[in-house]
Amino acid sequence: MKHIAIIGECMIELNGKPFGAMQQTFGGDTLNAAVYLCRGQEANLNGEAIQVSYVTALGSDPISKGMLSRWENEGISTQWVLEDDTRTPGLYLIQLDDQGERTFLYWRNQSAAKYLLQHPNFGLLKQALNQVDMVFISGISLAILPEEDRWALIHWLHQLKEHNVEIAFDSNFRPALWPQDQHHTVREFYQALYAITDFALVTFDDEQLIWGDNTPTQTLQRLATDGVKKCIIKLGAEGCLVQDFTTDFPPQSVPTQKIDAVVDTTSAGDSFNGGFLSAYLCGEDLITACQRGNTLAGTVIQHQGAIIPKALTQAALGII
């Protein structure tokens, strides 16, 4: 059984109209990926299971405990979720206007996940992760941390790599989480990460914004130079571009089906990541794994919310 540890932050989500009806749920890029990874592995024809562990910090409050219960119901292992008695999860509000347009407000500066690396039990967690097959983080996992903890996280990933743990990274760039001189700072941290990244799962729009790349091919060339071993570039409606730099094969395009009724693209990249990893970790080739990622993403964007009902993903993957 392959074991993947996914490091990040999950926040409380309030969704609705200001001072009106609000729906409470939860969400976060890496947590969304973990959910879709657990769901996607049900489509593995060889029946091979993947252990999915989420690594974060939550509070000891009822909402934190409720989130843990929901994650476990999805099949996510919460053994490495640290409890912080002094903090709570972050919160974000999605405001909808009369035309259905969304704006976001965040309260996460004192969230438990932000101080994960400073938790008294983090040292024990570091040792435990030496035994997993893959660690997956995103640009948000990195950006929410204090600067000194960002470098500490990268140093820790170096140590994991020395224990033959595969490192997967999605650049997932959120400008609001970085300082005003963000491009210089982001590039410095991202280059340090790409140097140890076995698998980059990036979105071209993000890479273009940070580096000024003109084409996905230029992005591939830069990532190969930075040290990335394998790369998926997500291209939205055009599908994705995949290349294994450890071989002589050229990049391959993996198209996706056209979706006419796009409702909500919030978790498109996250669901792709989960679907892709659910196939890749059980031994499928890169093209097959990309196709599963495309299928899940194409299903998710046709429905409201980052985490859609499980039955919809099962139907898309032919499980039911």
Rank of each mutant, 00 (worst) to 15 (best):
residue 86 T to S: 15
residue 62 P to R: 11
residue 117 L to R: 06
residue 41 Q to D: 09
residue 283 G to E: 03
residue 83 E to K: 11
residue 281 L to K: 04
residue 48 E to W: 07
residue 42 E to F: 13
residue 252 Q to F: 03
residue 311 A to C: 08
residue 266 T to Y: 01
residue 90 G to T: 06
residue 61 D to Y: 05
residue 278 S to P: 10
residue 236 G to R: 02
residue 297 A to I: 03
residue 31 L to C: 13
residue 196 I to Q: 10
residue 278 S to V: 08
residue 157 L to I: 01
residue 71 W to A: 07
residue 287 I to M: 08
residue 244 D to L: 08
residue 12 I to Q: 14
residue 193 L to N: 07
residue 9 E to V: 01
residue 306 A to I: 13
residue 54 Y to H: 09
residue 100 G to R: 10
residue 16 G to H: 05
residue 7 I to W: 02
residue 284 E to H: 12
residue 109 N to P: 00
residue 278 S to F: 03
residue 136 F to R: 05
residue 216 P to Y: 04
residue 268 A to W: 01
residue 25 T to D: 14
residue 1 M to I: 05
residue 114 K to W: 12
residue 127 Q to K: 15
residue 279 A to I: 08
residue 56 T to L: 10
residue 256 T to N: 01
residue 217 T to I: 15
residue 82 L to Y: 02
residue 47 G to A: 09
residue 104 F to T: 10
residue 220 L to Q: 05
residue 208 Q to I: 09
residue 173 F to T: 00
residue 308 I to A: 00
residue 95 Q to I: 07
residue 265 T to E: 08
residue 196 I to A: 04
residue 320 I to V: 15
residue 91 L to V: 15
residue 98 D to W: 11
residue 268 A to N: 03
residue 7 I to R: 10
residue 309 P to H: 02
residue 128 A to S: 14
residue 74 E to I: 00
residue 18 P to G: 05
residue 178 W to K: 00
residue 130 N to Q: 15
residue 112 A to S: 14
residue 53 S to V: 02
residue 142 L to Y: 01
residue 255 P to G: 01
residue 256 T to E: 00
residue 170 D to L: 07
residue 168 A to C: 07
residue 240 C to S: 11
residue 72 E to D: 11
residue 72 E to C: 12
residue 48 E to V: 06
residue 108 R to P: 00
residue 82 L to P: 08
residue 46 N to Q: 12
residue 70 R to L: 15
residue 35 V to Y: 03
residue 50 I to D: 08
residue 308 I to K: 01
residue 133 D to T: 06
residue 281 L to D: 02
residue 28 G to M: 09
residue 75 G to C: 05
residue 143 A to D: 01
residue 189 F to W: 08
residue 125 L to G: 01
residue 135 V to D: 00
residue 65 K to C: 14
residue 271 S to R: 06
residue 272 F to C: 01
residue 272 F to V: 00
residue 124 L to D: 13
residue 21 A to E: 13
residue 183 H to E: 09
residue 249 F to K: 13
residue 300 V to D: 00
residue 295 T to I: 15
residue 207 E to S: 11
residue 38 C to Q: 12
residue 106 Y to E: 05
residue 151 W to F: 14
residue 306 A to E: 02
residue 88 T to F: 15
residue 116 L to G: 01
residue 173 F to L: 06
residue 249 F to G: 05
residue 28 G to S: 13
residue 54 Y to A: 09
residue 95 Q to E: 15
residue 95 Q to N: 15
residue 246 T to E: 13
residue 218 Q to W: 09
residue 101 E to G: 04
residue 236 G to Y: 02
residue 286 L to Q: 06
residue 18 P to A: 11
residue 98 D to N: 13
residue 262 V to Y: 05
residue 207 E to K: 09
residue 305 G to S: 06
residue 148 E to V: 15
residue 320 I to R: 13
residue 148 E to C: 12
residue 275 G to C: 10
residue 44 N to Y: 02
residue 128 A to I: 04
residue 73 N to W: 11
residue 175 P to E: 04
residue 39 R to W: 06
residue 110 Q to F: 12
residue 289 A to T: 00
